[in-house]
Amino acid sequence: MEEEFNLKESLEGISTKLISWLDSLILNLPNFLLAILVFVIFVFLAKYIGQLLNKLLGKRVKQDSIRQITVKVSKAIVILIGFFIALGILDLNKVLTSVLAGAGVVGLAIGLALQGTLNNTFSGIILSFLPELQIGDWIETNSYAGEVTEINLRNIVVKQSDNNYVVIPNSKIVEEPFKNFSRTTRSRVMLNCGVGYSSNLEKVKEMTIETISEHFPSRGNEEVEFMFTEFGDSSINFVVRFWADATKNRDLLIARDIAIIEIKKTFDKNGINIPFPIRTIDFSNTLNMKKPD
Rank of each mutant, 00 (worst) to 15 (best):
F5S: 06
F5G: 00
K8R: 08
S10M: 11
L11V: 07
G13H: 06
G13C: 03
I14V: 13
K17E: 10
I19G: 03
S20L: 08
S20E: 14
S24N: 12
L27E: 13
L27P: 00
L29N: 05
P30Q: 09
P30D: 06
N31Q: 08
I36Q: 08
F39N: 11
F39S: 10
I41Y: 03
L45E: 00
L45D: 00
L45I: 05
A46T: 00
K47Y: 03
G50K: 01
Q51H: 07
L53S: 01
L53N: 01
N54P: 01
G58S: 10
R60K: 15
V61L: 09
I66V: 14
Q68D: 07
I69N: 08
V71P: 00
I81H: 09
I81C: 09
I85W: 03
I89F: 01
L90G: 01
N93D: 06
K94V: 10
V95Y: 04
L96V: 09
V99W: 00
L100V: 15
A103V: 02
G107W: 04
A109T: 07
A109F: 14
G111H: 09
G111D: 07
G111C: 05
A113R: 05
L114N: 14
Q115D: 10
G116F: 11
L118S: 05
N119K: 15
N119R: 15
N120I: 05
F122M: 09
F122W: 14
I125E: 03
I126R: 13
P131V: 12
Q134R: 15
D137L: 06
T141K: 02
T141V: 15
T141H: 02
N142D: 12
A145V: 04
G146F: 02
E147W: 01
T149Q: 14
T149D: 05
I151P: 01
V158C: 04
V158P: 01
K159G: 02
D162C: 10
N164K: 15
V167S: 15
I168G: 08
S171G: 01
S171N: 12
I173K: 03
P177M: 05
F178T: 01
K179M: 05
K179P: 00
K179T: 09
S182F: 03
T184D: 13
R188D: 13
M190N: 14
C193K: 13
C193D: 14
Y197T: 05
S198G: 06
E202N: 14
E202H: 12
I212E: 07
E214H: 11
F216T: 05
R219E: 13
E223W: 02
F226K: 06
F226T: 09
T229C: 12
E230D: 09
E230H: 13
F231V: 12
G232P: 08
G232F: 13
S234A: 15
I236E: 03
V239P: 02
V239T: 15
V239I: 15
F242M: 10
D245I: 12
A246E: 04
K248Y: 03
K248Q: 14
N249Q: 11
R250Y: 07
L253F: 11
A255F: 02
D257Y: 15
D257L: 13
A259W: 02
I260W: 10
I261E: 14
D268C: 05
N270E: 13
G271N: 13
G271D: 06
G271A: 05
I272K: 02
I274N: 07
F276P: 09
R279E: 14
R279A: 14
T280M: 08
T286H: 12
K290H: 02
P292H: 04
